[in-house]
Amino acid sequence: MNKVMSDKWFITLYILPAMLLLGILIFIPLVLTGYYGLMRWDGIGSMEFIGLANYINVLQDGVFWRSAGHSFLLALFSTLSLIIYLAVAMILASKIKGADFLRKIYLIPMLLSSVAIAQLWIKIYNPSNGMLNEILRGLGVQNPPLWLADPNIVLYSIFVPILWQYAGFYILIYYAALKGIPESIVEAAKIDGATPIQIAYKIKLPLIMGVVKVTVVLAIIGSLKYFDLIWVMTGGGPNGASEVMASYMYKLAFANNNFGYGSAVAFMLLLITLLVTLIVRKLTADKEELQY
């Protein structure tokens, strides 16, 4: 077996199917997208090469940077909410009653499709007969907020279901990581007189730090390229108040028939995501990995 695995030809052979798939589905379209970004193209007729004009326009496009700002805000909130998920996972992992049941409940939003979640929250947010405003009115609020229509709060209104949607996913990851910590270490800490807070903060957290870093990267990347709920719930409106990079890109290509510029925006989105990922990984790089 070892002999087979050290033979370069066999390695190549085993990697080939996955490489081909990745190449055809990811890398080639990626290069093509960058290439289309150099064109003036309505997606239907012939292309016209215009050099870097599209990319220069993206850099000067106020709407794009505003959308990017919204995407980064979502990334910030997603990352902060990881703290809550981690706390919930710690409580669930500490052998409380019904932990199994609660874990399943938290996972339910993950099982729903984004469009179903969006429809659900559109109903909840309905200004005149939505659940939320009915409750607020019941509590005596005279003019409850117009959740999806007010440009000042629409972005935050959509963040709530987005964070809710992914809560179960991160809780599950943390839960699994916490379950992997050997019981003996926690026992030893208890005997030494550590409080539950100390155990969580000084023992469990450092031991699962590797997983936490991965989730931070996942949350940031997921937020920067986020699309579905925003598209279904507001379409980026009112007037761009909830536009993010991906919805802007989609609008340019499919609503404005401007595939050249849309591709340029898509490529910028890729570059920004790559750059942010690199920065985050640099910042969280650790010389020594803790072992148990």
């Binding site: 990811i26 870093k213 996942l218 990347i221 920067l224 699309f227 890729l270 990922t277 990995e289």
Partner: peptide, 23 residues
Amino acid sequence: MVKMKAISSFAALAALSLAASGC
């Protein structure tokens, strides 16, 4: 660590797959 890097860069690349979402 190599594995983690692979996961995160793969996820980043997946961003682009959105460009093909219309298809």
